[in-house]
Each structure stands twice: as structure tokens, then as C-alpha cells.
């Protein structure tokens, strides 16, 4: 596989068949990008287009290029050559395979059946268990996993087993997983990350954000200096709220001191 340097999104049309306002975006290796916009504005459609290597054959009419060229058909025919891992909004699996067997098959498929796939399964479970408060039992059936466990496993699978140069994540913040830990672990990898998100903390960490409206990319906002200077405070507020949420979950009572992190 050629080394991936960039992906380009060539504009299509919005839901009313009007030309997309932004006609080209080039994402470079190492970019961390957010996709924002109201519900129904087409955020999921955009990252699905990327994952499908859309070629004016999806409802949006967009086209995706890799390193400036039409993507190789091999990307979609052999998962081991696919440079993209997509973490969808699904919170359940349909498969009744045990977790360990599912991951073993996927590790073999994504790594051309090389023998070291076994190690990857162990690492994937370790990664996933850092993201969820409920440890995953490797003999559970996939379909029995909770929403949080499902998302944790999908993220770990994308980072460790797929380990692709491009990772697309659809609303990880709604997943019932440790969001901050997820970001920390993912940032250890150099990749192109696209986060569909409503979360200020994730948004402020990104280099720029793609703004969606009515099925169209309407603008690209580069994170400003002022926004960056807000990031620290936003993280503090977020940590305080997260800690309060955790206390409530554990049946504890909130006190004045819980807000001290903000002072």
C-alpha cells in the first residue's frame, strides 16, 4: 500500500441538490479534524462517504481522493489494504460470536493472516478496558455487550487491530465511555482523525472543524488562538462535571467542594 499523505473531499450537493458550498477540503497526515453541525445536517453521511470512497455514487454526490488520486479498488476488496477504520454510531453488535473469537477473526482479516494477530487481540482488550468502567469478558457473546462496552471495543479495534492511517469516529462522546482517556490514548498515534462531535473539549483539541448544514459542508473554521486559550478552562469545567456525574452514578451527595476545580 502506498503511504497515505492526504485525503481530499470533493464537494457534491446538499439535500436540495444545490452545489455544496465548500468544493474541496484536503486533510493531511497528522490532522485532527472535527465535524460539527445540527442533528440531520449530514455529519454521518460525510464520514460514510469517506469510508465508502464515494465516487459521485452516494446521495451527496461527493468524491473522495487519496493522495490526490482515485482510490485503488483494492481498498474495498481486501480489508487488509483498507486505509480507513470507521467507528460508527452503532451501540450493539448483531454477532453472537464470543468476543475473543470475533477479535481473532478480525485481527487475521485486517493483517493478512499474519501470525502475530494473537497479540493484537490481547492489546485490543487492554485498550478497550481502559475506556469503559465495565471490563469486557472475553467469553461474552458480542451481542451481549453493553452500549459502552461495544463502543470501547470498536475504538480499540480501530486503533490496535486496524491501526489504519485514517480513523473516523462518529460521536464518541455519546458512547458511555471515558472520553478523555479515549482522546489521550488515540493521540499517541499519528493518523488523520475525523471526529463527528458536539463536544467543546474535542472540538478545541482539533486543528480545524468542518461545519455542516442541510447536507452540505458550509465552512471550515481553523481553531483560533482565542479558542485555544479557552481549552484549559473548558477542560477544567469538563473534568468537574465528569467527576460530579461519576459521584451521582455512585450514589454520593454533591457538595460545594465539588466545584473547587473551577477556582
Amino acid at each position: 500500500m502506498d503511504i497515505i499523505q492526504n485525503i481530499s473531499i470533493l464537494g457534491g450537493q446538499d439535500k436540495n441538490r444545490r452545489l455544496e458550498l465548500v468544493d474541496r477540503i484536503d486533510l493531511k497526515m497528522g490532522d485532527m479534524v472535527s465535524v460539527v453541525g445540527p442533528t440531520g445536517s449530514g455529519k454521518t453521511t460525510l464520514i460514510n462517504d469517506i469510508e465508502l470512497f464515494a465516487d459521485r455514487n452516494t446521495p451527496s454526490g461527493r468524491r473522495i481522493l487519496i493522495n490526490g488520486e482515485v482510490p485503488s479498488p483494492d481498498y474495498t476488496e481486501n480489508p487488509a489494504s483498507n486505509p480507513i477504520a470507521l467507528i460508527t454510531q452503532h451501540t450493539t453488535f448483531l454477532s453472537d460470536l464470543p468476543v475473543i473469537e470475533f477479535l481473532t477473526i478480525h485481527a487475521r482479516v485486517r493483517n493478512n493472516f499474519r501470525p502475530e494477530a494473537g497479540d493484537l487481540v490481547r492489546q485490543t482488550l487492554d485498550f478497550a478496558n481502559q475506556l469503559t468502567g465495565e471490563p469486557i469478558n472475553e467469553t461474552s457473546r458480542m451481542m451481549e455487550l453493553s452500549g459502552g462496552q461495544t463502543r470501547a471495543l470498536l475504538i480499540a479495534d480501530a486503533a490496535v487491530i486496524c491501526n489504519t492511517p485514517i480513523i473516523l469516529l462518529d460521536e464518541v462522546e455519546n458512547a458511555g465511555i471515558y472520553r478523555v482517556r479515549t482522546l489521550e490514548l488515540l493521540r499517541e498515534y499519528r493518523k488523520i482523525f475525523l471526529f463527528v462531535t458536539h463536544d467543546p473539549r474535542i472540538t478545541l483539541l482539533s486543528d480545524y472543524r468542518i461545519v455542516m448544514q442541510n447536507g452540505s459542508i458550509v465552512k471550515v473554521i481553523h481553531t483560533t488562538e482565542e479558542e485555544r486559550s479557552l481549552a484549559l478552562k473548558v477542560s477544567q469545567i469538563d473534568d468537574v462535571l465528569t467527576a460530579m456525574r461519576e459521584k451521582i452514578r455512585l450514589g454520593e451527595v454533591l457538595v460545594d467542594a465539588d466545584l473547587e476545580g473551577l477556582l
Binding site: N48, T76, P79, A85, L97, F102, H106, R110, A158
Partner: peptide, 26 residues
């Protein structure tokens, strides 16, 4: 569109295991 990418790839592998000469199109 109804399942995750990971599950799709495992399903595909299962088909190829049973029918290695059959071409898979998603």
C-alpha cells in the same frame, strides 16, 4: 449500513471461508 465496519469485515471473512471462489460485493 446497519452494522459496524468491524462486523461487516468479519461477516465477509465468514463467507469467504465457506465459499472461497465466490466474489464478495458489499
Amino acid at each position: 449500513d446497519r452494522i459496524s465496519q468491524a462486523e461487516r469485515e468479519v461477516f465477509r471473512a465468514r463467507i469467504q471461508e465457506v465459499a472461497p471462489d465466490v466474489r464478495v460485493r458489499e
